[in-house]
C-alpha cells in the first residue's frame, strides 16, 4: 500500500499525471479486481446451486447443525465494520487523522472478532466430528467460509497497513487518501460476500 502513495507521488511529479488521474485509475483498478473476486466465489455459488437442487433434504438436515446465533452475530459485526470503514474513508477525506486511526482500528477489531467467532464455530464442528469430507453440504460450508475467512485476513492486513500509514501522516495533503478509499472498497466486498453466505448456509428454509 505504501507503494501506491509513492507511486502517486512519482506520477504527480515524474510522469505528468495529476492526483486525480492516479486516484481514478486506482479506484477503477480495484473495481475490476473486485469483479474477479465475485467470479472466484461465483464458481462456489454455482456448485452450491447445483448440489442444493440435487440434494435439498441433505442441505436442510445439515444446515440445522450450524449455529445460527453465532452466524448472525458475525453478520452484525461485519456490517458494523463496513459502517466504520465508510466513516474512515470520510475521515481521511476530511484529513482528520485521529478519527481515521480510531475508525480503522475499530474496523480491524471487528475483523478480528469475526475471526475469533469463526474459530469457535469451526472448533465446535470438529468436536462433533463434522469435517469437510462429512458430506457435500459441509464441503461447501468449509470451502465457502474458509475462502471468505482468508479474504477477511487479507482485508485486515490492508487495514493494518492503512493504520501505519495514517500514523506516519501520509494522508495529510491533497487527494492522498486514495489508499484508504481503495482499501475500503475491498473491505466492503468482503462484507458483501458474507451477506450472501449467511442466508445460503445458515438459513435454509
Amino acid at each position: 500500500m505504501s507503494s501506491t502513495a509513492e507511486h502517486a507521488e512519482s506520477h504527480a511529479h515524474g510522469h505528468g499525471l495529476g492526483d486525480a488521474v492516479t486516484h481514478n485509475a486506482a479506484k477503477f483498478g480495484m473495481w475490476l479486481f473486485l469483479g474477479t473476486e465475485i467470479l472466484l466465489f461465483g464458481g462456489l455459488f454455482a456448485a452450491y446451486a447445483l448440489f442444493r437442487a440435487k440434494y435439498p433434504d441433505l442441505f436442510y438436515e445439515s444446515h440445522k447443525k450450524l449455529d445460527v446465533t453465532l452466524g448472525a452475530i458475525n453478520t452484525i459485526v461485519l456490517i458494523f465494520s463496513s459502517f466504520t470503514m465508510a466513516l474512515a474513508v470520510s475521515a481521511s477525506q476530511k484529513r482528520n487523522r485521529n478519527w481515521l486511526m480510531i475508525l480503522l482500528s475499530v474496523t480491524f477489531i471487528c475483523g478480528a472478532a469475526f475471526g475469533v467467532n469463526k474459530y469457535f464455530e469451526y472448533s465446535a464442528k470438529f468436536h462433533h466430528h463434522i469435517f469437510p469430507d462429512t458430506n457435500i453440504f459441509f464441503a461447501l460450508y468449509f470451502m465457502m467460509t474458509g475462502l471468505h475467512m482468508l479474504h477477511v485476513f487479507v482485508g485486515m492486513g490492508i487495514i493494518f497497513a492503512l493504520i501505519i500509514m495514517a500514523k506516519q501522516g501520509r494522508f495529510k495533503e491533497g487527494n492522498r487518501y486514495t489508499p484508504v478509499e481503495v482499501g475500503g472498497l475491498y473491505w466492503h466486498l468482503v462484507d458483501l460476500i458474507w451477506i450472501y453466505l449467511f442466508p445460503l448456509l445458515y438459513l435454509i428454509g
Partner: peptide, 12 residues
Amino acid sequence: FDIGFFDPAKGG
C-alpha cells in the same frame, strides 16, 4: 481434504 465435489461415490 478428501471432499467429494467431483466424486460420484460421495454424491459429487
